[in-house]
Write a protein that binds this DNA or RNA. Structure first.
Lengths: 142, 142
DNA sequence: ATCATTGCAAACACTTTGCATACGC
DNA sequence: GCGTATGCAAAGTGTTTGCAATGAT
């Protein structure tokens, strides 16, 4: 987790026409700094301590807005809630079925970019790979 | 939608140690015949008319059981409920953002099979591609 | 008789909506 | 002052759980 400058995030929001309010900046900052694909709940409970009047409605409103404007993206796994991320470079997601964590991985070489499949126009591509992560493998091997 | 023989489905269930009850066979039959990736709700409301005492609990129980035994698989999209399918050959999913339908497509050539990514052990891979489907494209083009 | 299956009803968890208050330009 | 942003509370939706009734061996 690295620290991200508020100025930078401010610019990001203004570029897409979103007013950079305190709550919105904090939510986006949280996503930029916590690359574990947090859920709305995780964002809420983390920021609730910093902003006492903070509400879940604002989290949901903001996530929806940021997603619509293309600042963040949403991904779903079968087992749990919708997760969000601010990493918009093309990448795949690896989900460990043991510890539940989500990792990003490079798609380069794995999946060549496509603009069309079976006559359907491709706009977006999500790759969700499941298995046992490096850490869990070494624990089991012990 | 093609008709699938009950005998065949019966064998499928017995092979994995699931008692082939009437409800279970009907649910699996529905999935085998309706390749549109139905939700639990879709299965329930369709079979409710045939089996008047049919309950949603049974749908959820059965889907969970079939998934655990590897007879069907579950997939998630961000926008709506969990969807299920009986097609277990490796394939990708194309979701049309206009009409909402899900299509299967061949993964061969798109994604070479992998057993490991970044040191994580790969067990399963889901590819969800979003865009505009062939039909919606031609409608828009008119 | 025993154990698995079914199904109703209630509980649950995540998300959305309605509406009133507060804030920024 | 006006429109947007915020936040509480209530409602909505999909799914799970508790438990009693039924069914199969």
């Amino acid at each position: 987790m690295s620290t991200v400058s508020l100025k930078e995030l401010c610019d990001t929001l203004e570029k897409v026409g979103i007013r950079p309010t305190h709550q919105r900046l904090e939510i986006l900052k949280y996503l930029a700094e916590h690359r574990v694909h947090p859920t709305a709940e995780m964002i809420y409970s983390s920021l609730k301590t910093e902003i006492p009047t903070f509400s879940k409605t604002t989290v949901y409103n903001t996530l929806k807005l940021l997603e619509k404007k293309g600042v963040i993206s949403a991904l779903a796994t079968v087992e749990d809630q919708i997760r969000y991320e601010a990493n918009l470079t093309p990448h795949g997601h690896f989900k460990c079925i043991q510890c539940g964590r989500l990792f990003d991985f490079e798609l380069t070489g794995v999946l060549p970019p496509r603009t069309e499949i079976d006559g359907h126009q491709v706009l977006e591509c999500q790759v969700m790979v499941k298995g046992i992560c490096r850490q869990c493998r070494s624990v089991t091997a012990k």
